[in-house]
Design a protein around this nucleic acid. Structure first.
Length: 440
RNA sequence: CGGGGCGUAGCGCAGCCCGGUAGCGCAUCUGCUUUGGGAGCAGAGGGUCGCAGGUUCAAAUCCUGCCGCCCCGACCA
């Protein structure tokens, strides 16, 4: 992409409404624009990151055996009356009426709808297990939206829903998602620690929040230091293996980890001093087993091998891709701007033409750009008339992992400079070497 | 929802107390000179001062109402 032809509205000054670093940087980097309180338009750069995140989420959901579909944003109030939540949900739910005065709502979540779909088609225990997910916009009319994408009202969510014949089956479904989440966040460069979460009226131990540690996190968290170095399952993990997954989940839940709501000060204090990590965290995922909470009242039943109908055991599993965009920035930034991990970066390489209009640099930079593009390397070519300093500032701000600086100084020696945004490391090499470095 | 604050050019702000028809920096446009860490000079364009009433000869400025947005708290993916 040629920057001169792109839509990247960089802000040099910080908008006053942005308080936390991810919000400031997203606005400054031209990733998004606020359209109303807690409601944002994604501009091209922001969309690229969001789609990278969704792609990883999707790959790991698919790998774990979940199946993608897509449910609507607008739902009928009828469904929610069946589960009893229409009255319970409160003012957070955006309620609307259509032209026939029918009561509708903008979905804050989809348990009712997925249960309706499952009960319509799933009849036999032979149809189970089943895990359906979608990535769809949600709306929760927060009293006080804040922190940009971190707590917006409209947000993108991946929500998966599992259906099983019994609790043992549901537990394995839960473990699948648990492991898929470990992999998903690790692929984005994040250390996400599963922490025991409130299970509400269902009870049990089958609810975990996945928390990443960040100085600007919204809540206080406490965990054992060993979690920071626990190995994440590889892509070859066998999701069909009940024992295998149970082993992984067992290990990842063996040590102390809790958010402030579930914090047990005494248990935490019992850990060795060096093992105690007390930090701030951001919730990026939440998994939950809730049994027959919806299937029973909504009569989502399957016939078992014994010929008896039973309500299905369900769980739901959420990841917030829009929140992850912000969380990633909270985790990866410095004073100059964002430092995207390669897996989610909007572009992998930025080429900076340091003397636009100079025949030699134009030719070298243009040639390198075309060669990288031909190799499928996502490249942003800064071919604008800006001075070098401005280009450095822009590239650092938007956080492209690799910058290739093409200027008269280096070209005099037949070289370009490759700079790593993450650690600031710089290497001189020939354009051909740079091409090989990224195109192989 | 309680408490606080702010709406003046794309962004950041001054002007408001003591009414007289709007200004600064950055950004934008033109020209020239510049070109390895947000360039310099010269010139130019851009604002129904959030909206609606009211007071007044005259309202960005005073009064009333409304809307929007932000921050703290309670709440939450």
């Amino acid at each position: 992409m040629r920057l001169s032809r792109y839509f990247l509205p960089i802000l040099r000054e910080t908008p006053k409404e942005a308080e936390i670093v991810s919000h400031r940087l997203m606005l400054r980097a031209g990733m998004m624009r606020q359209e109303a309180a807690g409601i944002y338009a994604f501009l091209p750069l922001g969309l690229r990151v969001l789609e990278k995140i969704c792609a990883i989420v999707r790959e790991e959901q698919d790998r774990s055996g979940a199946i993608e579909m897509l449910m609507p944003t607008i739902q009928s109030a009828e469904l929610w009356r069946e589960s009893g939540r229409y009255d319970d949900y409160g003012r957070e739910m955006l309620r609307i009426r259509d032209r026939h005065e029918r009561e509708m709502l903008y979905g804050p979540t989809n348990e009712e709808m997925i249960t309706e779909i499952a009960r319509a088609y799933v009849r036999s225990y032979k149809d189970l297990p089943l895990n359906l997910y979608h990535i769809q916009w949600k709306f929760r009319d927060e009293v006080r939206p804040r922190f940009g994408l971190m707590r917006g009202r409209e947000f993108l969510m991946k929500d998966a829903y599992s259906f099983d014949i019994d609790q043992a089956g549901a537990r394995h479904a839960y473990n699948r998602m648990f492991v898929a989440y470990l992999r998903t966040f690790a692929r984005m460069g994040l250390k996400a620690i599963p922490m025991r979460a409130d299970t509400g009226p269902i009870g049990g131990d089958l609810s975990h929040e996945f928390i990443i540690l960040a100085e600007t996190g919204e809540s206080e968290v406490f965990c054992h230091r060993d979690y920071l170095d626990f190995p994440v399952p590889g892509p070859d993990v066998d999701f069909e293996s009940v024992e295998g997954l149970a082993g992984i989940v067992g290990k990842w839940t063996s040590l102390y980890a809790a958010t402030s709501e579930k914090h047990d000060a005494a248990a935490f204090a019992a850990l060795p001093e060096a093992a105690r990590v007390s930090a701030r965290g951001i919730e990026v995922g939440h998994i939950f087993y809730f049994g027959t909470k919806y299937s029973a009242p909504m009569k989502a039943v399957v016939t078992g091998p014994d010929g008896v109908d039973r309500p299905m055991h369900m769980g739901s599993y959420g990841i917030g891709p829009t929140r992850l965009v912000a969380a990633l920035i909270e985790a990866f930034h410095d004073d100059a701007g964002i430092k995207w991990p390669e897996a989610v970066a909007p572009f992998r390489v930025a080429i900076l033409n340091l003397k636009q209009g100079d025949a030699a640099t134009d030719a070298a930079a243009g040639e390198l750009y075309r060669a990288l593009a031909a190799k499928g390397v996502e490249t942003l070519y800064d071919d604008t008339e800006d001075r070098p300093g401005a280009k450095f500032a822009t590239a650092d701000l938007i956080g492209i992992p690799w910058q290739i600086l093409v200027g008269p100084k280096g070209l005099a020696a037949g070289q370009v400079e490759v700079k790593c945004r993450a650690d600031g490391g710089r290497t001189m090499m020939t354009p051909a070497e740079a091409l090989a470095r990224f195109a192989s």
